[in-house]
Design a protein around this nucleic acid. Sequence first.
DNA 1: GTACAACAATTGTATATACAAAGGTATGTA
DNA 2: TACATACCTTTGTATATACAATTGTTGTAC
Lengths: 158, 158
Amino acid sequence: MYIQLLYMKELEDILKTTSEISLAKKTVINISLTSVDFRDSISNVLKPFDISIEQFNVLRILRGQNGNPTNLQDIQDRMVSKMSNTTRLVDKLILKGFVERFVCEHNRRKVEIFITKKGLKALETIDPLVLSAETKLTEALSKDELITLNILLSKLRD
Amino acid sequence: MYIQLLYMKELEDILKTTSEISLAKKTVINISLTSVDFRDSISNVLKPFDISIEQFNVLRILRGQNGNPTNLQDIQDRMVSKMSNTTRLVDKLILKGFVERFVCEHNRRKVEIFITKKGLKALETIDPLVLSAETKLTEALSKDELITLNILLSKLRD
DNA sequence: GTACAACAATTGTATATACAAAGGTATGTA
DNA sequence: TACATACCTTTGTATATACAATTGTTGTAC
């Protein structure tokens, strides 16, 4: 991850400075470190279920379709990662029995992905655990602070 | 990345709610999205130099040693990623002529890594470009806002 | 109707992370 | 000295990202 761009000792040095440039660098590092922390926590929640964060997300997307057929591009549009990987993510979910894949009859270039009952059941178990982890990850800040944080982050991403 | 835990449509929904739990979820997503944006930008800066973020960081760590021998654990201690990968990162930097590796004479279990002149020269070129990218990434916020953001992030990571 | 372009998904390669296992080397102790 | 243990690094495997190339299908222009 980008954290590695600057090692920790250097982060401490930056914390002592006030120049604009260092503040930029410090911010980039701080965001990255926080993101990694968050990701690690969520990963640990999912680990007992033998499912990766990305696979979990695909399952959530499929559930959101309420049983409607979903092709790979639909999934991809709702993810950040690249198409190339979605095929392989689905491959792994099929192996676990969480989803099924069929060739679309109306357009044989497409494939239709469905979540299975087993997949839905897994989500029901995992969802509250993830929610709980997310809450715990942010409980160091008050509601107002979280709102401020989100506003600042949204500004950054505009 | 964790962004994928919740797809974009869902993020918009969360933005409309005010419950504590949703705020937590929204924060986690927002952090992840920002981190990915930042990482992508820095990656693009490094791309013309055929060097990954992680490789760039190893070079910076080595330069920080001012010519002193650095073994893999020293490098690892300053990075977030796992030891297992540091060997391979160094392998790739050796292929590019940016670093050299020797077995430590005093303790043959260790290896000593040095940055080459070519590596130092590459850093001199790349450093200001990265700094510039970092500044650009954060310029949507004022100095005070950046300070606030960093304080909130630090609180989160405690 | 054939040729070509566009589309949808898959596959291949390089890089990175995470975890586990294995290798060689040094050290402490009996 | 011999042996067990700890240390440092390397290697293997599974997963994921990014980019490029390929396969198979559909649509369209001629």
